[in-house]
Design a binder for these strands. Structure first.
Lengths: 240, 240
DNA sequence: TGACATTGTCACGATTTTGTAATAAAGGTG
DNA sequence: CACCTTTATTACAAAATCGTGACAATGTCA
């Protein structure tokens, strides 16, 4: 289990050289970096795994960076992703248009140092909004910052996959996930694993949660699984 | 039994042997496959019936696979079709050019296993899941997100088919469906099942709904069934 | 390097779900 | 009512799905 809450950054730029530079700079700063060479690839990448922040080039063939941002904003799942636009010097008006959709913009050329600073600033101000808050249901507590899980105060030991599974579940209670969706969001969209493998990990997670909480993860027959904190199990009839 | 509606794949390659191999592999994986031996044929095929995904050979006489992809992208109706380019080893630069228009590319030779996996991954991430609101009639509530049904707060246990049947009904109240239509929309249009089987499932669904709601599903004699939330039952006037 | 943890797949058994056929009911009609 | 159609029910066997333990491959760390 990784100690640090590594933040994922997705770089969207059509120039390999620029991506390379950004990737190196950000990885040295401790970020997990993914790259996309077009808006289209970016959208696919985002769907596969939602990044904590995106760096988007303003000028790109086909779909412009701006257009990409707009599309992201329209989708519920991606609307909250902090966006930083990369613009070339002289495109000053981009500021005006760009800031409507982006959270910040950076003018090329820029120093990696400045970039990382801006990026961290954005993350600081945007993360408090929910995602990093601890979640708790019935004594089962998950702390995203420390990446820890405890059951009634008792620390649990989860493998990375188990942790991510539980995090996804606990941040989306009552929602049924298909095995495919789980593969996308927990494993990442670019790995090819048997869907049946999900079952095994669910089993391991349940086991790790212990008898007290294992039944929080319900099986949705024919589909997948669901985290159901609201115990409606035994039909407690309260008169009609 | 196809849990999901069968996905249609269109293979575009000028070599019969390759098409044959791909077809066999994909059909075994449960896809519905069509073939086209040229870009022209492919365009015609696409017009006839839009596939869920296309496998396009990079090197083809006359119009290249890339050009085909571009044309598809230009057309509103076909722009959204996920495309996978097949490239021969060594055409690495295809990645760069190709990814602008294609969603993924696969280098020959490849294992059928990998192909199917990649294909499923693409379909997973490109299939949009619409915003789904819960539906409720007279205490009978269906939640598409959690894939749950409750009757006056009491959770019901439905099999996959029962759930899909009810979902179809509740999202189309007052509409009469023939058995054939139900088979198409609940079972998926490509399975051969006796129409009488629908009756049995209706029976099971009614039973699952319990006495309180079983009569919401009406029999339309000579046609099929209908979900009628507005209880306009004639006959027995409920004594006050 | 060796012990240990993690992960992806299988295979087998226990349950559920599903498709059909057979039989009972109900609806319509002259 | 007698007769023919269309549905409702029931019973069963085949098929699909899930839970689990085992195993091999790989990664991690002291």
């Amino acid at each position: 289990m990784s100690q640090q809450p590594t933040r994922r950054v997705l770089i969207v730029d059509d120039e390999p050289a620029v991506r390379e530079m950004l990737t190196v700079a950000l990885e040295m700063a401790g970020f997990e970096v993914r790259e996309a060479d077009s808006a289209q690839t970016a959208l696919a990448e985002v769907t596969a795994r939602i990044p904590d922040l995106m760096l988007v080039d303003w000028m790109m063939p086909n779909v412009s960076g701006l257009e990409l941002c707009r599309r992201l904003r329209r989708n519920q799942d991606t609307a909250e992703i902090p966006l930083i636009l990369l613009t070339a010097r002289g495109e000053e008006d981009a500021k005006i248009t760009g800031l409507d959709v982006a959270d910040d913009y950076i003018t090329k050329p820029f120093s990696p140092r400045e970039l990382v600073a801006r990026l961290k600033a954005i993350l600081r101000r945007t993360t408090p909004k929910g995602v990093e808050e601890p979640v708790e249901f019935d004594g089962l507590r998950l702390d995203p910052v420390g990446q820890r899980v405890s059951s009634h105060g008792q620390m649990l030991t989860l493998s990375p996959i188990e942790y991510r599974l539980l995090q996804l579940f606990m941040t989306h209670p009552e929602r049924a996930f298909s095995r495919g969706q789980l593969l996308d969001r927990v494993w990442g969209g670019d790995v090819y694993v048997e869907e049946r493998t999900v079952d095994v990990h669910i089993r391991r997670l349940r086991k790790a949660l212990g008898v007290r909480h294992e039944n929080l993860i319900e099986t949705v027959r024919g589909t997948g699984y669901r985290f159901a904190p609201i115990a409606v199990k035994s039909s407690a009839v309260v008169a009609g």
